[in-house]
Design a protein around this nucleic acid. Sequence first.
RNA 1: GCCCGGGUGGUGGAAUGGUAGACACUGGGGACUUAAAAUCCCUUGGCCGCAAGGCCGUGCGGGUUCAAGUCCCGCCCCGGGUACCA
Length: 868
Amino acid sequence: MSLLNPPFSKMATPSKDYDFSSIEPKWQGYWASNKTYEAKDFVDQPTFYVLDMFPYPSGAGLHIGHPEGYTASDALKRFKKAQGFNVLHPMGWDAFGLPTEQYAIKTGTHPAITTKQNVANFTKQLTELGFAYDWNREVNTTDPGYFKWTQWIFMQLFKKGLAYVDEKPVWFCPDLGTVLANEEVLNTPEGPRSERGSFPVERRPIRQWVLRITEYAERLIAGLKDLDWPDSTKRLQENWIGRSEGGEITFDVSGHDAQLTVFTTRPDTLYGATYMVIAPEHPLVESITTEENKAAVTAYQEKAKSKSDLERAELAKEKTGVWTGATAINPVNGKAIPIWVADYVLMTYGTGAIMAVPAHDTRDFEFAKEFNLEITQVIDDNDSASKETSGALMEPYTGPGLLINSGEQSGKDSESAKNAIIDQLAADGRGKATVNFKLRDWLFSRQRYWGEPFPIVWVSKEDYDKADDSLKSVERPVSCEIEGQLRFALALPEAELPLELPVVESYTPSPDGQSPLSKAGEWLHVYVDPQTGATSTETRDGWLTGIRETNTMPQWAGSCWYYLRYVDPKNTEALIDPEKENYWGTPDLYIGGAEHAVLHLLYARFWHHVLYDLGVVSDPEPFKKLFHQGIILGEDGEKMSKSRGNVVNPETIIADYGADALRLYLMFLGPLEAMKPWNTKGIEGIARFLRKVWRLIVDPDGNVSANIGDGQLDAETERVLHATIKKVTEDYTELGFNTAISQMMICINQLSKAEALPKTTVESFLQLLAPLAPHQAEELWERLGNSGSIVEAGWPKHDESKLVKDTVKIIFQVNGKYRGDTELPADVTKDDAIAAAKTNERVQSFIDGKTIKKEIYVPGKIVNIVAV
RNA sequence: GCCCGGGUGGUGGAAUGGUAGACACUGGGGACUUAAAAUCCCUUGGCCGCAAGGCCGUGCGGGUUCAAGUCCCGCCCCGGGUACCA
């Protein structure tokens, strides 16, 4: 055999049988040149938009995880197209990103060049898997024609007052001279270290852009309600946003003209507040700490600063803290209570200060025990909490109950006391009901080269006043200190977009953590027309002196809205044409990994809500229906990774078995949403199935099999065929590919037994197979004498009447146990079925001499006789 | 700790409250072949039995039901997410 046999090939397929290595490229070329899967705007057909999470085109190429979700969407696309939908199934590249930039730092290769090569490689690999995307709609986040609109969206956020600048602590590694993302920092016994090189890292406050996602928190929670998403993902987002209702209460600090405001969800426990805690970073620490306590407090603050969040959490078991020496006055009972500093209180949540109620809060209880602080019970536990003989609590009681030791509030139940106490405080302006969110504003800048530049120019206060309002965030001007000078942010005019990245000599951030763009002198310094915002490198009369923003946007930016751009990818006038937006709507289905359950999906929803407010899109929610494909594990059941050496490479599988086999096998492994181990041996069964299909239609000489013609199908085979059409259609609709494939296996086993096969029968079968094994299906479709793509032939329909059997198998049970069965007419009556059961010998032997208590007949299925 | 998933043969998995193990993989036996590949047939949850057949069996313990892998209650184990959110 001519193809025998590359040394590493497991291929066992003679070319005569099914030569996928030539058939597959043939059809890939056919779909491309015939634009079989081109999505046409405004065609009078129902539309279906299926969206994949687009990949980051890494140098490593595709791994087996990519084809899993992509096979599902490709199959669904082909299925929907055959059913007569105008299908939009595009692909693109989330191409800004760290690895490309690091490669640039190492080799000096411009990231755009690397990106281009990687995209070419990914495109080739995706094509070889038979994914027929509408490449006319390809988008690339690094393409200026694309990021022009990413920048445009940012500009709208800026003008709406949803963007601001703040000094936020970020991880910085002096040895690497770079800012690191949280996930690039490891927690080691020696303290936080860089993942690469294991150098010490520290938190440094660096100027950052921040987006006010928290202003949309309420809407982002409310919007979840009507989404067809996995419940677990919805809950994850809900918890992430973390809405909690409570109140703010203001305490006076004794001996100071200062107040301490805390957030609490339990205002009902206010009488039990026996001390207060403020975060080490709290601004009041310096002013209220007494002389005697200064040294200890400062030392504690220093220690807290060097701890990572992770350490702070891990060391949580043992509570630490120091007293400031100051006290506060509990507004309801006038009691003076000590103010402590402790890192179990986070500056980033609420007000950075709490009232501690040790009797009714686990953390406060632990802390009070550690430092011997007073514990006053104010909610009656109804004797449910364990106590010492003295009556003191041995554990905090966090449940509801009646108030005790609470002055005039005593006797109220805790639920109604929450409002009552807040109302009481509100009367003197010491409290109000508030809602707090765990969600924090979105840190939206990176000190990197390979990202979208911000369309922002910084100018002095005087110049800012001269500039036209259309360039400003009018309601909330954005300002900050740059190089010791107070500066204000102006947006570029739309005509200046896209603002492209300058050519730089080095992609490494500067030693102080500034972006590489800060060294691009010519690009950096500009003059600005105060009226239009136009920029120039040369000054003109009355123009303002500005410097550009040197941070770049994070990778999330480009992926926040790409699904909109697919609808109108080449539009230079607008982000999206409203008529096209209206025609296609938002994706009917979004398939992607659960690892993006929170961040990507939340950020994209936020932007979409903003675009909705701006009138750019007609619906506030972008992803109505979401599906998470599972993860393919290595053969050892562990996560695939190079270090474990259990990585399965799709290219090798295609070389050995073909893309159709890989696609089918990926879907056959188990439910799409499940986490499942790869098993290379298992693919044999799929390869066998495909060969069987081939042999059913093509004889050993390569001609159409002699038994295919216009013969008559026997009744049982016909029943199986129609059952298969029905099941496969239902399963595809719900992405139940594994069971659809089983059913097709059952069908092919039945068909291979049939003596005569009408051509239409095998054609129907091929139509069912085509979404998953498109190459082979097209090839056989053609060999059967058809022209055009199989997808154009529509989708087979089952005939319910062919499914009806004349007889049904009735199971006989005695006391719920199987004791026999028989074929009976499908319309058998209850009495006849029971009578038949009683004549069965085995049934008789189990009911003989017993009293029949009950007889149950489940029509068409079961007779159960209860006898004792 | 909290929040999600999930525990079914040697393996991946299937099963609107109605014969548990479909469909595959692996293993065993056989046919074809000089041989191999490919293909086809039989067999493949455990125990007992020559057989007919019987008993047990879906993580564990209870419960509801004529009937429970499926529903309810209480646990155990595994995987993922999250981390003092006041």
